[in-house]
Simulated scan of single mutants.
Amino acid sequence: MKIPQPRGPISTALFSALAVTAGTDDAAAGVEELRRLVTAQLQAATDIIGDDDVQLALFCLYELHYSGLEGVGDEWEWEPGLIQVRHLLERPFEAALRAAAQSAAGELDLPPAAEMTSDAVADVLFGLAATDTGPSVSRYVSKKATLEQLKEFLVHKSVYQLKEADPHTWAIPRLTGRPKAALVEIQADEYGGGRPERMHSALFARTMRGLGMDDHYGAYLDAVPAVSLAAVNMMSLFGLNRRLRGAITGHLAIYEMTSSQPNRLYGNGFRRHGFEAEVTHYFDEHVEADAVHEQIAGRDLAGGLVEAEPELLGDVLFGATAVMAIDGRLSAHLLACWENGETSLRAAVPAAA
């Protein structure tokens, strides 16, 4: 992925540090300056989730563990000083997610975790999904969205969907038994069952091409606001930290439980503008697949994990309610902009490659 434009002092210092060879004196000096800057900037930060500079820096630090950044050596991935900087940014981000998740969850009356069966865990998660009555982007897309708004919608989603399933895959070696098998089953479908053209990321890229858009990963990174980056950074935070393996399973479970009907509406919105299966296949595929995945994710993955490790129930619920909170914030942003006739992006971007 190409290095994006910086959005403030942290991302500017990060990209400057990454411009030299890892392990050199210049690299060490650049990272130390970055660490000092991050420490100072975080003291003044009031909204980590909506902070463009922080979220872009975190996104690019995480990207070193995925496809990497163009012109940046792979040696940077585990450079100790850079990992320390990432931890500095992660701590307040996780705290903000926990606060938002607690607000979204309200008061849950649960039995002791050790007494929770996998079915009981799934029932709690399905109950949470049913309480998600926030602003509905899917209904707006289905009934009202203009062609330009459909393109904006794809821009926001492209930050994750063009690498769909990768953040959750980090959890596979951290699980055992029933939850591990459940996650592998879900991920196998996400990756097309061994057929590259059926990978969900490939289906989404085809949708973008169908609207004349650039389907290269990261092509629209400069255009998306902080909250769109935060939604993806949340997945990477959960997936890359073993201590949060409960959160990544809860994230995936609620993701699957709240996906099928919205994707049906998304597909209808694109059909309303005359697009056919070549464009809508991505959404239509998720209507069917996620109706099956929600049961596996709720009972076998999240429920199976809590049965095996009851102490992780709190983090499973944290992962689920954090999704609801951040998706609700992103949805509110999109709808407020669109209903006022404004762009939801940081800047208007050309739709075609």
Rank of each mutant, 00 (worst) to 15 (best):
76 W>K: 05
76 W>T: 00
80 P>A: 02
81 G>A: 11
81 G>N: 00
91 R>I: 12
93 F>P: 01
95 A>F: 13
98 R>W: 04
103 S>H: 14
105 A>E: 04
106 G>Q: 07
107 E>T: 11
108 L>Y: 03
108 L>E: 01
109 D>S: 14
110 L>H: 01
113 A>S: 10
115 E>S: 03
117 T>F: 02
117 T>M: 04
118 S>M: 04
119 D>A: 12
122 A>H: 03
122 A>D: 05
122 A>I: 02
124 V>S: 01
126 F>W: 12
126 F>K: 15
128 L>P: 03
131 T>A: 08
131 T>S: 11
132 D>K: 12
136 S>F: 09
140 Y>R: 07
144 K>H: 15
144 K>C: 13
144 K>L: 14
145 A>Y: 00
148 E>L: 10
148 E>M: 13
150 L>Y: 08
151 K>F: 08
152 E>Q: 13
153 F>L: 10
153 F>R: 04
155 V>K: 02
157 K>E: 12
158 S>F: 02
159 V>R: 01
160 Y>T: 06
160 Y>K: 11
160 Y>L: 14
161 Q>M: 11
161 Q>W: 14
163 K>N: 09
165 A>F: 14
166 D>N: 09
166 D>K: 11
167 P>G: 03
168 H>A: 07
168 H>Y: 06
169 T>S: 14
171 A>Q: 03
171 A>G: 02
174 R>K: 15
175 L>K: 05
175 L>A: 06
177 G>I: 09
178 R>T: 13
178 R>S: 03
180 K>A: 13
181 A>M: 07
181 A>F: 10
183 L>V: 00
186 I>K: 01
188 A>Q: 10
189 D>F: 03
189 D>G: 13
192 G>I: 01
193 G>A: 12
194 G>A: 10
196 P>C: 13
197 E>S: 14
201 S>Y: 07
202 A>N: 14
203 L>F: 02
204 F>H: 02
205 A>C: 06
